[in-house]
């Protein structure tokens, strides 16, 4: 006689699979909690890639040389490509719930789906364009590398490709920053001011150290399901270890006098960002949140006729 597995048995088998290092695929059974945490994580990642094109958009035509124009065009195109890849992964996860990409966009517009804090910020100079490539993409490499072995196969595979491209972006950003840091006084000032603007958002990028700071944290669930391994704080410390010496070595100053490495505690000591401000920013109350959502929404409305035309059968002449 065939006996159907109970949900509890399915759950036990599932956990055994991920602890044995097996990958879960889109059509496999998975606990609701796992599906929901993946949807939240991957849709947020995907939409952040797309919203992340907007602060850089301004600098695509303004890039100061042909080489830089080509470089930033290639970079932003990659980011859109990452967004597309991740939305495809999300679409498979939301399909059993009867949802589509339209719902993802709706959630973005009504504020249910959040995007990364850094993409709510202003990028007023060419120095910011370079810094986004160098340090924001550098930070993204650190958080994404942490999930390369994620238990969910489609996400792990997408991240492998994304991380490979992010390395190029970080090099592109670093090249812009080095040129400015070795340049005229005005160029040096431009890059120093960008560091000052982006330092706090960069600390926030890794998320709060624990739930105390902002009330909730998905860290425990993502660790339990082997989606990520390191904690937010460990990732932030990795970022400091990699980038603080580099920032200082090109003559830039970090806008935190307390910043230093404590040999005894074996960790970086730094001024915590304002987590209340972080909460406001990701609730779409950052300096550029509404303007960027407006751009996205306007294009969505403005092109409605195109989507309608594509959905119509071709013989409807």
């Amino acid at each position: 006689m065939i006996r159907l597995e109970t949900d509890e048995e399915k759950h036990i088998n599932f956990m055994e699979r991920i602890y044995a290092g097996e990958k879960i695929e889109a059509d496999d059974w998975m606990p609701d909690e796992y599906r929901n945490v993946l949807i939240k994580l991957i849709s947020m990642h995907g939409i952040s890639e797309i919203m992340g094109a907007l602060p850089e958009k301004e600098w695509v035509p303004k890039a100061p040389t042909l080489k830089r124009k080509l470089g930033i065009m290639a970079k932003v195109q990659d980011e859109m490509g990452h967004g597309q890849l991740l939305l495809r992964v999300t679409e498979d996860l939301i399909k059993p719930l009867g949802k589509t990409r339209e719902d993802i966009m709706e959630d973005l517009f009504n504020g249910k789906l959040k995007f990364h804090n850094v993409f709510h910020m202003e990028a007023p100079t060419w120095g910011d364009a370079g810094l986004i490539g160098w340090l924001i993409d550098g930070a993204a490499i650190i958080t994404q590398t942490n999930m390369l072995n994620a238990s969910y196969g489609p996400y792990a595979r997408a991240l492998k490709r994304i991380c490979a491209e992010e390395v190029f972006h970080a090099q592109h950003g670093e090249a812009i920053i080095l040129a400015l840091a070795e340049g005229t006084d005005e160029q040096k000032r431009m890059v120093q001011q960008a560091v000052e603007r982006w330092w706090e958002p960069l600390l926030m990028f890794f998320g709060p150290g624990d739930a105390k700071a902002v009330g909730t944290s998905k860290q425990d669930i993502t660790a339990k399901y082997r989606i990520r391994s390191k904690s937010n704080e460990e990732l932030r410390q990795d970022f400091f270890t990699k980038y603080v010496p580099r920032i200082l070595s090109i003559g830039l100053t970090i806008p935190d006098p307390s910043m230093h490495y404590d040999q005894e505690q074996e960790k970086w000591i730094y001024q915590q960002p304002d987590w209340e401000k972080f909460k406001e920013i990701v609730r779409n109350k950052g300096p550029k949140s509404q303007e960027r959502l407006r751009l996205r929404k306007l294009s969505y409305e403005n092109n409605e006729w195109v989507r309608e035309a594509l959905a119509r059968p071709n013989d409807a002449r």
Binding site: I50, A53, M80, Q84, S299, N303, R307
Partner: peptide
């Protein structure tokens, strides 16, 4: 950039 009719077209 970022305004095309869909994400695939943007890419």
């Amino acid at each position: 950039l970022g305004l095309a009719p869909h994400i695939e077209e943007d890419v």
